[in-house]
């Protein structure tokens, strides 16, 4: 589904990504871990071109997305993104937050978009918040709304950029629970996180990144967490586990 080849990204003189290759298949749940400054978030943001790569190639569903002729906006409809700081639209109601993109892009009629949004809200138990504004929600609720907002576009893959890092500890659970449900539904997911428990439980693949490269890739997360091969990975895990 996504093929990344020799991807590199620099900000001026600073090389953040130094040749990353990976393949993400349909239904994969890939978790990316690593120390801060290792390039995890930049890597994730390159996948939907929020950061424009300086080198290498990314193919999404057979299409070369780093090609300047690629229609970025159309591509992003198929990639949901969830941010650390939720980035809900504060001037719009919860319902409008969810329906804005499908209606503006004329993917759904207003009535259909609202019906779908209400279905999604019911699923996460926040249907009664449809008419309220983001400022009235807790962090956990905001992040769940942000996930639902991305889902409203019917994406083929969901990208999560540290979705629980800005949350109070007691709210992390509800967000991870929703992400687990998504994973169980077969959603393709790429997730940058510090939640090792989530990684162990949900991921079918773990990428350990440091200094702009993938230091270790494991198809068996349980084994990776028990016995990492790479010395940097071992050091990192000994600090966080």
């Amino acid at each position: 589904m996504i093929e990344i080849e020799n991807l590199s990204k620099s900000f001026g003189k600073l090389d953040v990504l130094k040749g990353i290759s990976a393949t993400i298949h349909k239904g994969d749940k890939v978790v990316i871990i690593g120390p801060s400054g290792s390039g995890k978030s930049t890597f994730l943001r390159c996948l939907n071109l929020l950061e424009v790569p300086t080198g290498g190639s990314i193919r999404f569903e057979g299409q070369e997305i780093t090609d300047p002729k690629c229609d970025v906006d159309r591509l992003r409809r198929k990639m949901g993104m969830v941010f650390q700081h939720f980035n809900l639209f504060p001037h719009l109601s919860i319902l409008q937050n969810i329906t804005l993109a499908p209606i503006t892009l004329k993917i759904l009629s207003k009535a259909d978009a609202e019906a779908r949004a209400m279905d999604l809200l019911k699923r996460i138990g926040l249907a009664d918040k449809a008419r309220t504004f983001p400022a009235m929600l807790s962090g956990g609720q905001k992040q769940r709304i942000a996930i639902v907002r991305a889902l409203a576009m019917n994406p083929d893959v969901m990208l999560f950029d540290e979705p629980t890092s800005a949350l109070d500890p007691e709210m992390v659970g509800e967000v991870l629970q929703l992400m687990k449900e998504l994973a169980d539904d077969g959603m393709t997911m790429v997730c940058v996180t510090h939640e090792m428990g989530f990684a162990k439980e949900v991921a079918n693949r773990v990428l350990f990144m440091d200094e702009g490269v993938i230091m270790e890739e494991s198809h068996n997360p349980a084994e990776f967490f028990a016995n990492p091969q790479n010395p940097r990975a071992r050091e990192f895990l000994s600090k966080v586990l």
Partner: peptide
Amino acid sequence: GQMEAGRSLGL
């Protein structure tokens, strides 16, 4: 982040 959120929805 507001611009990024909008753009990542395909707007």
